[in-house]
Design a protein around this nucleic acid. Structure first.
Lengths: 144, 144
DNA sequence: TTGCGGTGGTTGACTAAGTCAACTACATTT
DNA sequence: AAATGTAGTTGACTTAGTCAACCACCGCAA
């Protein structure tokens, strides 16, 4: 009988979310892990990413994302820029404060990342990430 | 720079939860994936498991678990049995209907499991599970 | 060129999941 | 026996995730 993968995965995610939340709360400012996730993407693709792009990348529901972005804008971390090619959409840019937050919280995230990797080799980490991607891909294929 | 493991993991969990929910909804009866998770544990350790044991195993918050169990009892899938050694706690038993549900939904879960494993070797699956456990363990160590 | 189906984004209304604190009842320690 | 600890419950709340309806705009085909 082949192993059930879900249970360890649920456990891992749970622990990870808890650690991340704790790490992030230190320098707190109304930011949740999900805000952080989105903010990092916006930071990375600064002014070259639309809400819809983020939906594609993350599979976050577009309704939820619209709200997250509204909140990030409300906090002054993000702004909308007109997209001259398509008046329905807009590019997302990050503010100086936004960058601050990303930088600051990246440190915390990195710490969690390192803790998580304790006792594992780079090869194992890479394999793990590869397998996770593959499995997600398998599941997503199925649902279309 | 070492790879960030969180993003693929978040994606995988997201896809997995979605698939599971869909798989479970087919034969629906007020059951969520989390109910299922708890119900399976109760089925496995039938009459030999307490609420607190489940909290230890899963890290589900005890408040949340109390409510889940109340719901499962309300649905007639689970019952409480007095624990003669400790009047504060009780053992959890599963009913015939409960077993039915577990059996039925295990099929659905197994299907999702198989989809997830497409193109991976048994060795890779085993490694993946091992690494997930190790990482969860690392994180949990840290938080005490 | 208009009109029609599709897409990006927003809002409403909701369910599921997770958290924290306070409390009850019983157990253990000292 | 008193103090301290633990199992489970309840209240009140936050974070995530989902679905449907809608608007403004896009692109294409008749």
């Amino acid at each position: 009988m082949s192993e059930n993968i879900k249970e360890p995965l649920f456990n891992l995610l749970h622990s990870m979310k808890r650690s991340l939340r704790q790490a992030i709360e230190v320098g707190d400012l109304g930011i949740t892990p999900l805000h952080m996730r989105v903010l990092k993407i916006i930071s990375f693709y600064n002014q070259k990413v639309t809400a819809n792009d983020i939906v594609q990348k993350t599979l976050i529901d577009k309704a939820q994302l619209a709200r997250l972005i509204k909140e990030l804008i409300g906090l002054g971390y993000v702004s909308k820029l007109d997209n001259p090619n398509d008046k329905r959409s807009y590019y997302l840019g990050i503010s100086g404060e936004g960058e601050q937050i990303v930088k600051q919280l990246s440190v915390a995230e990195h710490r969690v990342n390192e803790i998580m990797k304790t006792g594992l080799t780079e090869q194992e980490i890479a394999d793990f990430a590869r397998l996770a991607k593959q499995m997600a891909h398998n599941l997503n294929q199925q649902n279309e």
